[in-house]
Design a protein around this nucleic acid. Structure first.
Lengths: 337, 337
DNA sequence: TTGTAGGCGTTATCAC
DNA sequence: GTGATAACGCCTACAA
């Protein structure tokens, strides 16, 4: 079914059908109705490829997600959902590319065949080949997270540094003197994953400012690792009375470890961190944490990308969110033994 | 950058470039190399829209996921990941459509503008408008899950009925006389969600066969509901000594409820169910469960869809998986009080 | 208010 | 072994 067939059946020319559809030039009510009737009857919709070819745009956004091998965290899933949702609202489709590196076939297909009008990149590294690649290609893009050179690109991010610092200060205010940072995995840190590095730096800085003892320990992004992490912490750093976490995926394990070793929260151990709200509220006791607004971030990313597509020459804009830390039940005064 | 420009620079015609690229007709080694050199230099890739227009296929699959508002379960996420992965392996892209109903704009865009060569549908209802719609459109599709009329369509599913029955029999063999079914949500059941209905029927049947007392209770798909579910169970059905679950998302809550009420598993309460392996192994004690092979199912769905695209007239094929129940640590003999 | 015609970038048929 | 050319379905000047 194509526009020519509709035109034939409605007894008009193809252009009239096209104009009736787009409304870009007036069409008499009578012919418009006749055309619409035929369209409804045959269930016609313009061919997307032809339209894309003609208009030079695809009405499709690319979303680059971590490879399938890596299990998506709840937060990442939140981004995907919110991006897809926001795109759908703008009548845009989303093409998925599961890719880590630069030379991934699916990534290359996505960006270099004019398949999409713009790209949203998740899980950015401090030095990220894909960003360079996209720059070279001249394709509009927005990243969730930012690189070490943030000024040339459009991005949306959470200010992990400030949030971790606030957590440390909050805990210090409560009298804690030994605080541990439950960081992301060693591999991620080695790969130059920004949030982990920024959290590390801010943690060290805040610990230093308050004259505290800090323990910065990485942890793989899964429950089992979280459980082990807590055991090791209790074992090797008995002086620690509070934890700052940015590792959402390790929370269930942390919880199990706490229960297994029968540690009372917050009486014996305070915890404050950064997590999706859903995760923080699922923790027992509920976690004092900065709730990462994934929904909002995905929507912002799409909005920024649309701006960028509309005016690629405009200076890149950023959005660094510092969500408030919601006081829940996992932090309390340090025991004064 | 287009094929004409490449042709010009390589000093050949456009068709030669095209043939050098596709290999559909012999090109002398010398010219092929010259062309390749130009292509590499300029980083040319054929325009996807033009190719789709000419070839009449998009090399893209559509994946219809539950709307973003509904939080994806781990199992659903597993399907998405495996479908995307399998598609990438076949050099196909995946277009996402978050849609529940039939009249969703994004769903309509997906299926009626020739945007995709085929569609994979998740979260099928027993009576599903979208299936009807796809049939009418004549677009090849495969569903994960199946409708009440399974013979006309291609699908991949887990045999919830058999698995639930096996769980019941396993528990009955261990001497349990009162068994509860931790089902999916009331809304899902009301909406005609197949797995919930089939589990229900098989549960009732097995309970009857073994002359047991069965309690079939729905539960919303989230941890909080799981916790409440368990409390109510203990409260109202003290005779129940075993649980069969098909509600993965409620597991963390079930776990919390068990811990809070200080119930020993499996000494006081046995649990067997259906869940992603990841989830079952994360449970404490590890859950005796049929591990839903999401990875395999996604790959199968893609394979079936590709078959269907290649030969749309072939009789539809199905795949009903009955993964073995892995004995772990959550089931044991009923207490003989 | 409506129709005609050209071109978007490919691939494939036909001719050489 | 290679080149010209006609489609694919749509949109949009330009013409009437």
């Amino acid at each position: 079914m194509n526009i020519g067939e509709i035109a034939r059946r409605a007894g008009v020319s193809r252009s009239t059908v096209s104009y009736a559809l787009t409304g870009r030039r007036p069409v008499s009510a009578e012919t418009r109705q006749r055309i619409q009737a035929v369209i409804d009857e045959l269930g016609y919709r313009p061919n997307a490829a032809a339209r894309a070819l003609k208009e030079g745009r695809t009405r499709t956004l690319g979303l680059v997600i971590p490879p399938a091998s890596a299990r998506l965290t709840d937060m990442q899933l939140g981004f995907v959902a919110s991006v897809v949702e926001a795109a759908a609202q703008a009548d845009l489709d989303v093409l998925l590319s599961p890719s880590g590196g630069d030379h991934d076939r699916s990534f290359e297909r996505l960006i270099s065949g004019n398949r999409v009008d713009g790209v949203i990149l998740m899980e950015i590294r401090l030095e990220d080949e894909r960003v360079t690649r996209l720059h070279r290609e001249g394709l509009p893009f927005v990243t969730i997270g930012h690189t070490a050179h943030p000024h040339g690109t459009c991005w949306v991010d959470v200010d992990y540094g400030t949030l971790v610092a606030r957590c440390v200060h909050h805990l210090a205010d409560l009298g804690h003197r030994g605080i541990a940072l439950l960081n992301r995995s060693t591999e991620l840190i080695a790969a130059g994953y920004g949030p982990a590095h920024r959290a590390q730096a801010a943690f060290a800085e805040a610990i230093h400012q308050r004259g505290l003892t800090g323990v910065d320990l990485p942890c793989a992004d899964d429950p089992a690792a979280g459980e082990e992490w807590f055991e090791q912490l209790r074992d090797r750093h008995p002086g620690v009375t509070a934890i700052t976490t940015i590792n959402e995926a390790a929370l269930p394990g942390l919880q199990r470890g706490i229960e297994r070793l029968d540690v009372a929260v917050p009486r014996e151990m305070s915890i404050a961190g950064v997590a999706a709200r859903h995760w923080a509220e699922g923790f027992r006791p509920q976690l004092t944490a900065a709730d990462v607004p994934t929904l909002e971030m995905g929507a912002h990313a799409v909005a920024l990308l649309l701006e960028r597509i509309a005016t690629p020459t405009a200076p890149p804009r950023h959005l660094l969110l510092t969500p408030p830390i919601s006081l829940r039940d996992s932090t309390g005064p340090a025991r004064t033994t």
